[in-house]
Design a protein around this nucleic acid. Sequence first.
DNA 1: CGCTGTATTGAAAGGCATCAAAGGTAGTGG
DNA 2: CCACTACCTTTGATGCCTTTCAATACAGCG
Lengths: 226, 226
Amino acid sequence: MTLHCATCPVRDRAACAVLEDEEREELARAGRLRTLHKGETLFAAGMTEAACATLKSGALKITSIDADGRERILSLVHPSGFVGEMFGPYMRHDVVALGESELCVFSGPAFAEAIERYPGLGQALLRRTQEDLFASRELLALTGTASAEQRVAGALLSLARAASDSPCHPAKEFDLPLSRGELADMLGLTIETVSRMLTRFEREGAIRRNGKRGIELLDPALLPLR
Amino acid sequence: MTLHCATCPVRDRAACAVLEDEEREELARAGRLRTLHKGETLFAAGMTEAACATLKSGALKITSIDADGRERILSLVHPSGFVGEMFGPYMRHDVVALGESELCVFSGPAFAEAIERYPGLGQALLRRTQEDLFASRELLALTGTASAEQRVAGALLSLARAASDSPCHPAKEFDLPLSRGELADMLGLTIETVSRMLTRFEREGAIRRNGKRGIELLDPALLPLR
DNA sequence: CGCTGTATTGAAAGGCATCAAAGGTAGTGG
DNA sequence: CCACTACCTTTGATGCCTTTCAATACAGCG
């Protein structure tokens, strides 16, 4: 399937936004559109074939499996985000769709070539990767010493920010892209603890739950943040 | 103080190794040599001035302070490693010397200009930043669900690998670059728990302690890894 | 030799995991 | 439309692991 950049929902936020129109069309010819359903795997850890992708819509999780076979969520990818490896010999982690998702997928060599040809693209990716690094370290700081209460509160605010269009202010009302189990896997907790914390926040009037996934931030100041 | 690349101990492993000799000399004129003593701060979180550096010798820690004023170690930097921000408006984290350290320091704009001029440098940095990202995620996976025993064991092996010259095989005997407290801050544990795990490993014959910092890996197979 | 900071060891408390069961919700088919 | 199943979520009771609090040991250094 070919790519149609002109109608791309993330054309001015994704990494390729730094390219001129004709350059982007050129790059688009090396990629292909792919649609993933909830739970489908984009990349599997250990894959020896380098590849990468830009997320157009939906959401992804980057995960690894620990010794006990338990899944650990290392990062979330939101629209305009970039995943994959252009260089490495193999994929380090699994990348799985959290819901219906659309992506532009490129082979590693093809994208590496594009970086060679368009230095601006490499720089854009460098900035983006640094941002990913900071996000990863933020999660590290959150899950390191914080209590279960603080972890869930922090995740709620983080997801509220991601759900909002303006990057600064969190959305007042939004749907969690993650199940309780996935939330637990991201925070290093159990399903039961996450559930308990959510009911606690609701009882204290900080949030209101609408169905399984719906969250309304009534009074964020009541959340026990770090 | 000017830089002398010809005698630099990391000249063939650092990011600038991708440059030609004369290009590197050109870059060197934009940087300066700096020596840090144990505990000295290279960059402070919140600093509005972009800057970056390559570590020539010694070791650094990248840290943030959580709500309770407790320090959290997010990453370690070993010789030939790169730290800092070329682009961002401010420093996200503190960067502090773990021991006597030598660095090449550059201002953010100067280094950004070098990236513009030498695309290979930007690519080298991109690879390096991706490696940092994977390292961060590895620590995230380690501290997420693993028990205290597994965390300390994992940290020991990781530090043994870092202390070794060959990147694959861990050093049999080495000195911890971190105090007990710093190890605890990195793993999200307390000093006491770290100490208890080390004595447990020694009692079980997995390691031997030589003084406060010395570690000898007697039987790594006994370490309860993930 | 005493002092200060770091490390070890012990006992008690608390938080989260585990085990177990019930309550909801969605999807399927009668 | 309802019944039925399967899955996710919530809630409860118990136990373990790590933290916390406290004291001792040890090394470096004036």
